[in-house]
Design a protein around this nucleic acid. Structure first.
Length: 276
DNA sequence: CGGCATGTTGCGCA
DNA sequence: TTGCGCAACATGCC
């Protein structure tokens, strides 16, 4: 379930389990997770070290160990972290790190991932992928001027553009759909057609959906789906009542309101002879 | 059984 | 470089 809010939620969970703790054991049960490296080598690089930082940028996690080893982790489509109560393996468990804090029993942080598209990359410095990520809405905030400049260069749809991790880090299919609904922008609008007011509205909408989803995750018990359009095709728009429509953009299902989300079009700017 | 799924990468081609 | 279309990855769930 990983887009920015979910990964941030998981980051906090990982930090509570591992930050400043001493890694006493590590087991990587699925070689695919660390391919092409050998699970044993990766396990050994963590065991015996303290965790010094737990960071996130977009959908990537970066766990730092003393001695400068870094673990970059991505949850793919179905990855998740759980705190396990014992050594007993969890369903779909792919890896675990057991750590000892100054006090208390050892903590088991377990990575579970049914579909196995997640990755653990051990490195000594920031990876190219990490460095290529755009600003993260929570970590860095969104600079609307920077966003506007990036969108102005793109001829793809605005929805595909904001899901590009080099444009904004962490926005996925759900958050993109929710933000565009909030900003009243038709997802099919060409990115470069947005004017500065549209981008300002979109910026606020992205903050709105991310914070709302994150606060929902942080609650003990979450109620019904908090989403306004995602997964609601065929149901009435919660703002205007029109029937929500489902289309495909960039190979991803996209739900939006054909009535209150407006397609943005702008006349091509062209050179015109000066008056007189 | 068929269809769908919150992500990323890579390839061919224009 | 940009963009498009598509396949691949692997599996659960409805």
């Amino acid at each position: 379930m990983p887009e920015l809010p979910e990964v941030e939620h998981v980051r906090r969970r990982i930090a509570s389990a591992l930050l400043h703790a001493h890694v006493v054991d590590c087991t990587i049960g699925d070689p695919r997770l660390v391919r092409p490296f050998a699970p044993r080598d990766v396990e050994k690089s963590f065991i015996g070290h303290d965790v010094t930082r737990v960071d996130r940028r977009g959908k990537w996690l970066r766990i730092a160990f003393d001695g400068a080893t870094l673990l970059f982790a991505h949850l793919g489509m179905t990855g998740w972290y759980e705190i396990a109560p014992s050594d007993a393996p969890l369903r779909f468990e792919r890896a675990r790190i057991t750590a000892q804090k100054k006090k208390g029993p050892p903590v088991h942080l377990v990575y579970v991932d049914p579909r196995r598209w997640g990755a653990w990359i051990r490195a000594d410095e920031d990876t190219k992928t990490w460095r290529s990520l755009a600003a993260d809405p929570l970590v860095d905030g969104i600079d609307a001027s920077v966003l506007a400049a990036k969108l102005a260069k793109r001829k793809i749809t605005v929805k595909e553009a904001i899901m590009d991790q080099r444009v904004l880090a962490g926005v996925g299919n759900i958050q993109a759909a929710e933000a565009l609904w909030r900003a009243k922008i038709d997802p099919r609008s060409t990115a470069s057609a947005l004017d500065r007011k549209d981008v300002d509205r979109l910026t606020k909408a992205i903050h709105w959906t991310i914070e709302r989803t994150l606060s929902d995750l942080e609650k003990d018990e979450h109620g019904p789906s908090p989403f306004k359009v995602y997964g609601r095709a065929g149901l009435p728009c919660l703002r205007c009542g029109a029937t929500l429509k489902k289309i495909e953009l960039g190979g991803r299902t996209t739900t939006f309101c054909p009535s209150c989300q407006v397609k943005i079009t702008r006349v091509r700017s062209r050179r015109r002879p000066r008056a007189r």
